[in-house]
Design a protein around this nucleic acid. Structure first.
Length: 833
RNA sequence: GCGAGAGUGGCGGAAUUGGCAGACGCGCCGGACUUAGGAUCCGGUGCCUCCGGGCGUGAGGGUUCGAGUCCCUCCUCUCGCACCA
């Protein structure tokens, strides 16, 4: 098509149209936020109502792909709709430009990560422009720019001051391929979120953000997001945070002064505790192990450390463990119970130790049966004895063998037991969360350096604000290959630094931050991109935030979205923003797949966006994405028809060339039947856009297009003002999906660019209202006749019409009418006797 | 195992409060115009049919004058979490 002869008045050629309008738009730059305010400092402000639409910014891995094509088609549709509605719209773009792929590419090519990164950014920027996305290019940012990461570091230091950034030694997730640690959120089913390698554990000292301090608020603040975020994202976040209620209980360990606290959700089963388990990696385990058992314990610990997360998490796996040679004292009955180390207890959840109640917890029962530990029933649920069946009775029942709570049910038992524990000072009611602190340090080069100096005499010293940014050294040509420690550690003249506090010799922290830190605040930077008095200008953030509509993939349901919510709450507590949630509404677009499977090189089913654009043009591809189905559903490229989209676009475009009436003629003198369709379409398309039912909206535009075609060819003809009215409205509505075609139609209709700011068409409610509706007559619920009636027909009139119908009387025969339901104006149901 | 969501033609998908099932598109069939058609336009297209009609929204039951929609049981699929005490 694009290779065909250049566009003549009757031949649509998308290549010609794209080449014609793209330079015009770039020159006009029509999508600047605050567009009505001049650039002069004393100019009037843009007082229109503001809307902030944000698409999740891309990672610059090569050119844009099909997934980008889909996501940005949806985001752009909404943004362009808001522009047409006359809002002052902020629709920015930038790049999440730190990250491992750049580093790995640099290692392969023996180049600097920035070369690969910034080259890809330029490629993507050009592709976005060609794709016709309505960005405000003046606000572009890259998280790998020192101007940006200076403020990432600044924020880190504010977190540090507030005790929300800290370092500790712990067993952490380790990706052996990427040679770096990972946050809990970045381990997907035991595998590295990035590269898919099985994750192992390592004991390392790492930086954390104390997101657990915000667990309850992260839960509570989801209330207002209900209905405006996808339900499944909210559910996933709730599950991830994982609040659970129960109690802390203190157990004395023989030979140790300090009692050991455990968390349990079933304090009511305390009398059924027959052993005690400590996580092998927990410090406690090696502290309390008896000398006689130390060798056995250490062998076990080695074995546990070798296991990958996948092996460890497998539910079929047999329980393992080792007796530690000591006993704990049950605080309610003084009973001595053996203490074991077993890896089914996690070191970093609760207190890393549990009381085991095998009768009423399946995991404890599995363990007890394997190691011949007694099972004592303390809740009678009416089910058979767990010791015999091997099935723990975890449900509700009446307490037995439990002294002070005998005879009580679960709820009363829990309450009474907590009261008793509190009275004796050996426990208390408690809430814990599954959420862990966010591990943010990474042993890689291409990220934001952690602005901390380690001084032999002063300890951790923050880099003073006026010395930010701590810039990455130019490691061109250096060895970046992963070695398990940051490549920065090898750059001695970068690492060695004077201590900001005492001036003595000190060393920089050599880890870089998780790139999810960079992306946790970029949406704030967009509000005042050049600002150098802080990460953002609070006044500008006040004006634009929170984001009215966020658009992006569901793969960030927890990761990025949870982190950003956390950041926003911290900034709120710092007093610099007055909102607590960054994203008022969220739209998750689905994935583009091919032949039922995710596109991948190994499957050979990849579809290249730029190739599709070359074949069908930008508009047809965008339309195909939007028309394929609901935005949140996956699109199988094998099931959709870009050529069908192109056909429709051409049909619409030709209409503009057929209009022969002049601009500005009063459409009221035009054909009423066509006007009704036009106005009803405007009404419905608007509603469908507002409710994100874009595919249904497009269907209405297709119907309008057919109707106009008929009006021109076999109706009132091309000179009728109603035809012009219809085509103008069609062009403006299409502009949110197929901007090039719409612009060209607009020109053919005699207007100047740009159709993008032409203003959304309004509709006449009388014309949009249906003049007649189809009433149906059923007999016993089966359709027997239908006819057109006025929408405001009375029940009586409708009943008369129905009973008078020939078809109805035939079908009814001589049966009695037992009941008659009339729902004017749509339905009559006759129930025969 | 736990949690969430979804099952509608050959396909993608439509269907206010329960009220014409299958909008729109793809594909397919037929026609027009053509030297030609992988262009364009027009028409048809859920299944069965003795052409009266009958049957149809994963299966079975229920509520109702009326169920794709509400309730119960089951089946299948997708996604998330996965020893969280």
């Amino acid at each position: 098509m694009s290779q065909a002869s250049p566009a003549t008045p009757d031949a649509y050629d998308f290549g010609t149209i794209q080449n014609k309008w793209l330079p015009v738009w770039l020159r006009m730059d029509p999508f600047r936020a605050d567009r009505l305010a001049g650039d002069a400092p004393d100019s009037e402000p843009d007082t229109r109502e503001r809307r902030y639409l944000l698409d999740m910014f891309p990672y610059p891995s090569g050119d844009l792909h099909m997934g980008h094509g889909e996501a940005y088609a949806f985001g752009d549709l909404v943004a362009r709709y808001w522009f047409q509605k006359g809002y002052n719209v902020l629709h920015p773009i930038g790049w999440d430009s730190f990250g491992l792929p750049a580093e790995n590419a640099a290692i392969r090519r023996n180049a600097h990560p920035s070369e690969w990164t910034y080259a890809n950014i330029e490629t993507q920027a050009e592709s976005f422009k060609r794709y016709g996305v309505s960005f405000d290019w003046s606000r572009r940012l890259h998280t790998s720019d020192p101007d940006y990461y200076r403020w990432t570091q600044w924020l880190f230091l504010r977190f540090y001051e507030r005790g929300l950034a800290y370092r500790r030694a712990s067993y952490v997730n380790w990706c052996p391929k990427d040679q770096t640690v990972l946050a809990n959120e970045q381990v997907i089913a035991g595998n590295c979120e990035r590269c898919g390698s099985p994750v192992t554990k390592r004991e390392l000292t790492q930086w954390y953000f104390k997101i657990t301090d915000y667990a309850q608020r992260l839960l509570d603040d989801m209330g207002p997001l209900e209905g405006r975020w996808p339900e499944r994202v909210l559910t996933m976040q709730r599950n991830w945070i994982g609040r659970s209620e129960g109690a802390y209980v203190d157990f004395v360990i023989e030979g140790r002064d300090e009692p050991v606290t455990v968390f349990t959700t079933r304090p009511d089963t305390l009398y059924g505790a027959t052993f005690f388990v400590v996580a092998p990696e927990a410090k406690l385990a090696s502290e309390i192990v008896a000398p006689s058992q130390r060798a056995a314990f250490e062998a076990y610990l080695e074995q546990v450390k070798r296991e990958t997360e996948i092996e460890r998490l497998s539910t079929e796996r047999e329980k393992t463990g080792v007796f530690l040679g000591v006993h704990a004292i049950n605080p309610v009955n003084g009973e001595r119970i053996p203490v074991w180390a077993a890896d089914y207890v996690l070191a970093d959840y609760g207190t890393g130790a549990i009381m085991a109640v095998p009768a009423h917890d399946q995991r404890d029962l599995d363990f007890a049966r394997k190691f011949d530990i007694p099972v004592r029933v303390v809740v009678d649920t009416g089910e058979p004895d767990p010791a015999e069946t091997g099935v723990a009775t975890a449900g509700e029942g009446v307490h037995v063998n439990s002294s002070l709570i005998d005879g009580l049910g679960k709820i009363d038992g829990v309450r009474t037991m907590i009261e008793a524990l509190e009275q004796r000072g050996v426990g208390k009611g408690a809430v814990t969360y599954r959420l862990r602190d966010w591990l943010i340090s990474r042993q890689r080069f291409w990220g934001c350096p952690i602005p901390i100096v380690h001084c032999p005499s002063c300890g951790e010293v923050p880099v003073p604000d006026d010395q930010l940014p701590v810039e990455l050294p130019d490691l061109r040509g250096a060895d970046l290959s992963p070695k398990g420690t940051s490549p920065l550690a090898a750059v001695s003249d970068w690492v060695q630094v004077d201590c900001p506090k005492c001036g003595g010799e000190a060393r920089r922290d050599t880890d870089t931050m998780d790139t999810f830190v960079d992306s946790s605040w970029y949406y704030l930077r967009y509000c005042s991109p050049g600002y150098d008095g802080g990460p953002f200008n609070p006044e500008d953030v006040q004006r634009w935030m929170p984001i009215d509509q966020y658009v992006g993939g569901v793969e960030h349901a927890i990761l990025h979205l949870l982190y950003s919510r956390f950041f926003t709450k911290v900034l709120h507590d710092m007093g610099v923003v007055d909102f607590t949630e960054p994203f008022k509404a969220l739209l998750n677009q689905g994935q583009v797949v091919n032949q039922g499977k995710a596109m991948s090189k190994s499957l050979g089913n990849g579809v290249d966006l730029s190739e599709q654009l070359g074949k069908y043009g930008v508009d047809a591809i965008r339309l195909t994405m939007v028309f394929a189905g609901p935005p949140e559903d996956d699109i199988d490229w094998a099931d959709v028809s870009p050529s069908g989209s192109l056909k429709f676009i051409q049909r619409a475009w030709r209409l503009a060339g057929d209009v022969t009436s002049e601009r500005g003629v009063d459409p009221a003198t035009g054909d009423t039947a066509l006007r009704k369709v036009t106005h009803r379409t405007i009404k419905e398309f608007t509603e469908h856009v507002e409710s994100f039912k874009f595919n249904v909206g497009i269907a209405r535009l297709m119907e309008l297009t057919s109707t106009i075609r008929k009006a021109i060819d076999s109706g009132p003809g091309p000179a009728d003002p109603a035809v012009r009215e219809a085509v103008e409205a069609l062009a403006v509505m299409l502009s949110v999906v197929t901007p090039y075609t719409a612009e060209d139609m607009w020109e053919r209709l005699g207007f100047e660019p740009t159709v993008a700011l032409a203003g959304w068409p309004s509709y006449d409610a009388d014309l949009a209202a249906a003049e007649s509706v189809t009433a149906v007559v059923q007999i016993a619920g089966k359709l027997r006749d239908k006819f057109d009636v006025s929408p405001d027909i009375s029940e009586d009139e409708l009943r008369q019409l129905a009973l008078a119908s020939e078809k109805v009387r035939n079908a009814l025969g001589d049966r009695e009418i037992r009941r008659l339901i009339v729902r004017a104006p749509k339905l009559v149901n006759i129930v025969p006797g």
